[in-house]
Design a protein around this nucleic acid. Structure first.
Lengths: 325, 325
DNA sequence: CTGAAAGCGCTTACAG
DNA sequence: CTGAAAGCGCTTACAG
């Protein structure tokens, strides 16, 4: 038989004071309380194991301390890492994180936003890919997009400089002596991967040897594609993968076919998630500043400041491009 | 100027009825409403863009529809996958998920539990490793542990049969002709990895060639350990890694040293996260039924039923053990 | 410095 | 079938 949790009124009764005073001491304000009274209240609260009911506080003060985080795809480590950094940043600001996975579905994203709004979140952080996202522009609470956002400019979007990252990747592969540099894009253009693809196109000019490849954003799809290209003798010698997921699938397919990386395939990936450092071989990446992006998004949401862009993606040379670590 | 969101009272006024009736139609009960009245209410709600305030409902009905999910370590894909499945299962039951990452710290876990309780969650799902967990037995709301839980039996624990998984792994490596099978454990015993280690010990008997290795639960630590063992000529020929994180680190270290897997090292991992299928080479694993575990935890929490144990971990032969895929 | 009281937006007995 | 009203646990003007 667990007894009813104690309330403010219980504490007030026990301390022989009013609920107002109890509230003032629990919240350290907004009115001063005499030291002696404060002690009595604190003692009463401790004896009763009082824990403030945030729901009641939220109803009254119209702020829940909860932020909704919508993920384009929680199973992609890139979004996963972003999510962890967002949650941590919010926790540092004493906010709770309500999380939802849209699984690349705009409908599910819209549904999540609705549910979060009904839960009276104080704000929304939407980690969006290309497809989902532009639709449900949330109303009533502040929202910040990460990675990709609607173009209408109604909500801030935090993203790294994708074009610069691609230019670095192409240049690096050229330094390794590759004249042609292929690109593994997503199934559609649009969103950050579309931007990356455009930047690649601009960088390789019209070079016919620099072919455009496409696969879903999954290890499985890139693995299958790689096996097929190898069996057809059509695998490029130098390749930029739009995402780590795809790059890992390429590595997996290449290994299975006995094709050595980087000797027969020089590979660079554009996400730079933590996992990219422990593949076989380790992936050369342009590392997106995931933590900085997450922190900036949280700061913008809580309007702590409107800091400048996050640091640009940095090229991290590892083995897969042909560097010797 | 965004105007104040409409309330039940606004809808009632517009529909020319009482708030009680509006509540009845919004919630389809618990009292019947005349069809004509219902239409008026629905129309009014639609015109006003009414969205029920779940906080107010929660305060009144003492149930928030929110569950708190505490993760031992969100950056470990094993826990990450579990978290996704839990969130999806909760979503199917129309619950929202408040998420927090304890980062292997019992203090942070306790702190998260406190905050979740203050937020009036309807229940807690605690995905715990060995170290964190036993401390803060939450009070007042139902709780279910996943992967590992306190031994006192106060809360249900959902976990796969770790011993059977280890026995399968050892037997499989023996079928490949390995008399000695080493084991890469975590930094301490205790929790599921402790159980796995014990089961390994029982399976290999006192064989002196079956050595016990230890590393942190990270790719980095296992990578470093593997490089060191190789340089010392002390790497075993057959190894069971307690976790996928460690197995991936082993693969990474082996590749960097030019040591071929599985030819010179046969490797099996005991988690079986999705990533294990796309390493180079693909990892042979005992696959923990992560989705089934998550669903059972949610069902237990919402006391839908007390189903039997989740299905046992199944051995998935891939390349790293020496099988030819 | 402190108390009595209104009110946040709902749900649900209680009358009719 | 419907309405008037109490109350969930807080916060915060308003008096004193």
């Amino acid at each position: 038989m667990t007894k009813r949790p104690s309330t403010l009124a219980d504490v007030a009764r026990r301390a022989g004071t009013s609920t107002a005073v109890v509230s003032y001491v629990i919240n350290n304000g907004p009115r001063p309380v005499a030291a002696a009274t404060r002690e009595r209240v604190l003692a009463a609260a401790a004896e009763l194991g009082y824990r403030p009911n945030r729901i009641a506080r939220a109803l009254r003060s119209r702020t829940t301390g909860v932020v909704g985080l919508v993920l384009a795809d929680a199973s992609n480590p890139y979004f996963g890492a972003l999510a962890r950094h967002v949650e941590q940043a919010l926790e540092r600001h004493d906010r709770l994180t309500l999380v939802g996975n849209a699984g690349y579905s705009p409908e599910r994203q819209g549904h999540l936003v609705e549910r979060f709004l009904a839960a009276q979140v104080d704000g929304l952080i939407i980690v969006s890919s290309d497809t989902a996202g532009d639709a449900a522009a949330p109303t009533g609470v502040p929202a910040v997009y990460v990675h990709h956002g609607p173009a209408d400019g109604h909500a801030p979007v935090v993203a790294a400089d994708n074009r610069a990252a691609v230019r670095q990747a192409v240049a690096h592969l050229r330094e390794h002596g590759h004249r042609s540099v292929a690109f593994l894009a997503g199934p559609h253009d649009g969103g950050p991967v579309g931007v990356r693809r455009e930047a690649w196109e601009a960088a390789v000019g019209g070079d016919p040897g620099s072919v455009l490849l496409r696969s879903d954003y999954s290890r499985a799809a890139a693995d299958v594609l790689t096996r097929r290209l190898i069996s057809e003798g059509a695998l490029p010698r130098a390749l930029i993968a739009a995402t780590d997921e795809q790059a890992i699938g390429v590595l997996s397919g290449a290994w299975a076919c006995g094709l050595p990386v980087p000797d027969r395939l020089a590979l660079i990936s554009l996400d730079g998630t933590p996992e990219s450092a422990y593949t076989a071989p380790a992936l050369t990446v342009t590392e997106q500043p995931l933590q900085a992006m997450a922190e900036q998004a949280v700061d913008l949401l809580l309007s702590l400041d409107g800091r400048a862009e996050p640091p640009a993606a940095a090229l991290v040379p590892r083995r897969s491009c042909g560097c010797s670590e």
